[in-house]
Design a protein around this nucleic acid. Structure first.
Lengths: 145, 145
DNA sequence: CAGCATCCGACATGATACTG
DNA sequence: CAGTATCATGTCGGATGCTG
């Protein structure tokens, strides 16, 4: 499972090659390494399901696999598994396997995961607030050209 | 340009088929239509470059195309164009074309775009704060299995 | 039930060449 | 300079079948 195809953290510049990519967000106290990591985290959070899963676990607390799948809505089993593994790896979610005979696995946000969910909250609120505005902007744009 | 491959807003249940996908984020005041739209906005914001471009414009103010491309770092011209068009369509960015002979096009966040940037700020801060924590969680996870 | 392996198509993205 | 058009490719993600 390729966990990050092109966002591997560059430990050191190694040879003379320039650091792949770089930007100039002067606002944040970014060392070059930080910058790369920041972008990686964003890319991670930004995939199709991660945000949704986080939100779901945040709202509903501990959930087992199937329940989670239903709640998120539209995730395939494969993608949910992958997403959860990534979250687990990043320390955002705990995976609790019960050794019962129909297996049961519970997922729950860690405090770190909860803090991330909170940080994302602003985004959700924005989307909710500006639903209509964006919809209208699109109509405008599409009609004009 | 397929703007949303599978996130079309389900107007009504139509026939007996269940509404494609749905989740149960009880926390937000979601009508079914809102829910779909929320997810669409997220998917939009969540692509590889949108967040980066937003941040860039937020920090640097009005910028022309090439400057923006350098600042974001790593975007191809094609992807930057596409990203900017989407942002423009959603009313998040204005596109100012100067009719000079080396063409000059300035991009700037709209107030709406700025408000989105602000909403995203929490995410940036989280990433910055928890850089080390996540890195260590990954080392742990990777070493154990 | 949870999850892994595989096949496969659709799309995203990069590279390149061309235009006003 | 700021795009558009085209081509190549890798990844994402869904469907399916299998396992403990």
């Amino acid at each position: 499972m390729p966990l990050s195809e092109n966002e591997s953290v560059p430990e050191q510049p190694a040879d003379g090659a320039q650091p792949v990519v770089s930007n100039d967000w002067g606002a944040c106290n970014c060392t070059p390494e930080k910058e790369a990591f920041l972008r990686e985290v964003l890319t991670r959070v930004a995939d199709r399901w991660t945000l949704l899963v986080l939100e779901c676990l945040d709202v509903n607390g501990e959930m087992r696999f199937t329940r989670l799948q239903e709640s998120v809505g539209g995730v395939s089993q494969k993608m949910l598994t992958k997403t959860l593994r990534q979250l687990e790896r990043d320390g955002l979610v705990t995976r609790n396997v019960h050794a019962t005979v129909p297996p049961r696995v519970d997922y729950k946000l860690t405090p770190l995961g909860e803090s991330l969910s909170e940080s994302i909250c602003g985004l959700w609120m924005w989307a909710d607030r500006n639903l209509q505005v964006v919809a209208e902007a699109r109509r405008d744009f599409d009609s004009k050209k």
